[in-house]
Every structure is written in structure tokens, then in C-alpha cells.
Amino acid sequence: MRRRRFKEQENTAYYHLMSRTVNGEAWFGGREREVLRKIIWQVAEFSGVRVITYAVMKNHFHLFVEVPGERSVSDEELVRRYRILYPRPTAWQPMSADVLAEHLASGSSEGRDLRKALLGRMHDISYLMKTLKQRFSIWFNGSRERFGPVWADRFKSVLVEGDRWALRTVAAYIDLNAVRAGLVKDPKDYRFCGYGEAVGGGRLARAGLSIVDSDLAGYRQTLYGTGAGAREEKVSLSREEAVRVLMKEKGKLPLSVVLRCRVRYFTDGMVLGSPDFVNERIQSEEGAEKRSRKAHAMLGSDWGGLAVGTGLRKALFR
């Protein structure tokens, strides 16, 4: 299927991104997940995007990012970001940050070309994912003395409205991945997600989640649908029971329960936010005039008025 592309955002934009390994192979143990976690922060810093939260799993990862509307970058900032991604020359990038700084300061055509090429890789989710996945693939294949692709060809992306409730709901879905997979009972105990890293004192992770809630205790209430301190809170239904109620009985469940199911709205919904936001973004899509599309209300729970750009009538909850 052709990946949908939206017109360039003039203001800050938010995206939920997800990529899976080839054939869904569960290749990532603790070491691999830790390396990927570090690369996420490194590439995001180079790209000039802000990580709101993330989740690195055994065969896929989720990334929720804020892409700034302001695209100007000084030469000093460009060199700083370059040094983060290339702290020392490599076979793939032999130029050092000091040499880049000299080219930029000279005002030569070579310096201008280098600046244009580097800026073209920043503030762009496609280049962000390409750089991230390539860098991890090189490390992964080298560490296992293997060849071949690590990732499935495409990554999924959903444009999310910059509304606090929409951002918080998407972030919670991502941070609950390990709970959904049965790896932990509490997301704070999973070191490879934004919430777990933030609770552990991670400065960047805390800064990212501050976008959705200034207080981690308040965000925890979204994760659990109850008071911030209620660690012992249990989901009243199993995942299988929840899916049965949602799919077969067409019922509704508490949001905290539904977020523990695999909900395709978050990976295949195209756009997520208020109906007005979704309809506006659909109309701006390339070729939108050739198709009849409209915002679809999210089903199965009280989503606070959220809608998505695709109906997803089949296998919505898995």
C-alpha cells in the first residue's frame, strides 16, 4: 500500500511511528533493546526532534515524537548535532565534526552543500526512521556476523493532534506495550520504555513526558485509570475477555482496560485527534479530492471524543 504523505507541517507536528522486524522475528534481547534505546535518543537529537516516549520490544519498537515547526539551525548547532551522531570518523562517514565546522565557516560552495545535505536529514520523520534503522542494522548484523535486512520495508506512522488528551492517550498506549505483552505488570518496571526510563530518573525521558503531563503521577492515572498511587490496581478483565466484549458484543470498556489490548487505531488510523483536526488533515492529503473520506469516531471505550482517519472495521482489537 502506498504510504500516505501529508503536506509539510508549518507548525509543530506529532507522530506515532512503529517499525517491526522482518517476519516479526523476536531477535531483541536485553542487549539489543538497550542498544536500540540509546540509538533512538542519539538519532532524535541529531534530527532535531523531541522524543515524547518510546517502547522497544522483542520484535518492534514504537516512537512518539514532536517535530518542530521552526526549521532554522545555526552552524554551531549543526556541528553539535553532527558530533552527536558521528563522534569520530567512520568508514561510512569519514569527515570529522571539526572538518565540517571548517567547511561551514569558510562559506565555500562545499560548505553550503554540506549544510543543505545535513539539514535535509533533519526535522523529517522519514530520515529519522531511515537513519535510526540503518544505524541499528549495522550494529546488529555486525554483532551477529550476519547479512540481510533486519527491518520490514515500511514503517507505520500516525499524525496526532497536538491536543493534551490526544497526546496523553497515544503515549499511554505506547508505554503499556510491555504490560500488554505480559513482560511486566507495571510499566515503570520496564526499562525500555519512556515511562520506565522517566521513573528511573532519565532526564530526557522526563522532559518528553512533560509534554503530555507536567507530573508523572498525573500521567500514571492515565495509564491505570485510577489514583496515581494505586500500583495494586488490577485490570478486571483478561485481554481475551476484553476483545470478546469489544468485538462480539460491541460493548464498551474502561479506557485503562482497552489500552491493554492491541488497538489498530494507534498504528493504522492515519490521523488521530478531534474530528475537526482529522477532517482537516484528510482534506490536505495528496489526492484527497479523489476519495470520499471523513473522520471516524473511535469505538470500544470513552476516548474523549477522539477520531481517526480510517474506519478499520475489521480486526480493530487484537
Rank of each mutant, 00 (worst) to 15 (best):
I125L: 12
R112S: 09
L176H: 00
L176E: 01
L167Y: 00
S143Y: 14
A171D: 06
N177Y: 00
Q93Y: 02
F147A: 15
V99M: 14
F147Q: 15
K185V: 11
R164F: 03
A117E: 15
S109K: 15
F147S: 15
G142P: 10
I125M: 11
R164K: 10
G182P: 05
G107N: 08
I174Y: 03
A97G: 06
R135M: 12
L104R: 10
S96P: 04
Y173V: 00
K188C: 11
D153T: 14
W151D: 03
E145Q: 12
S126Q: 15
K130N: 11
L114F: 12
G120Y: 09
I174N: 04
G107F: 04
D113L: 14
G120S: 13
N177R: 02
L104Y: 07
R112C: 05
R168L: 01
A172D: 00
V179G: 04
L159C: 06
Y86Q: 01
W165E: 10
S106K: 13
I84E: 00
L118D: 14
Q134H: 13
F147H: 14
R144V: 03
R88V: 13
E102K: 15
E161L: 03
K133S: 06
R121N: 13
L85M: 03
D163S: 10
I125Q: 11
S96R: 02
D124H: 11
L167D: 02
K156P: 06
D163E: 06
R168N: 05
K133L: 07
G162N: 07
K133E: 02
G111E: 07
A97H: 09
S109I: 11
V99F: 11
I84K: 00
R146E: 08
S157W: 06
F136K: 07
T90K: 03
Y86S: 02
D153G: 13
L118R: 09
R88Y: 09
L183E: 15
S109T: 13
P89V: 00
S126M: 09
S108Y: 00
S109Y: 12
A181R: 06
F140P: 02
F155R: 03
W139T: 02
V160P: 03
K130M: 12
D163R: 14
L176G: 01
K156R: 07
W151F: 11
F140L: 04
L128E: 05
A166S: 04
R115A: 11
K188L: 12
T90V: 08
H103K: 14
Y173W: 01
A91K: 08
R112V: 04
S126I: 09
A97E: 07
N177T: 09
P149H: 08
S108Q: 06
A181T: 08
R144S: 04
S137M: 09
R121W: 09
I174S: 00
G111Y: 02
S143L: 08
N177W: 01
F136P: 04
H103N: 13
H103P: 07
R164G: 06
R135T: 06
A105F: 09
G142L: 10
A172P: 01
P87I: 02
K130W: 10
L183M: 14
L183C: 12
M122P: 08
P87T: 03
D163W: 09
A178Q: 06
L104P: 07
F136S: 04
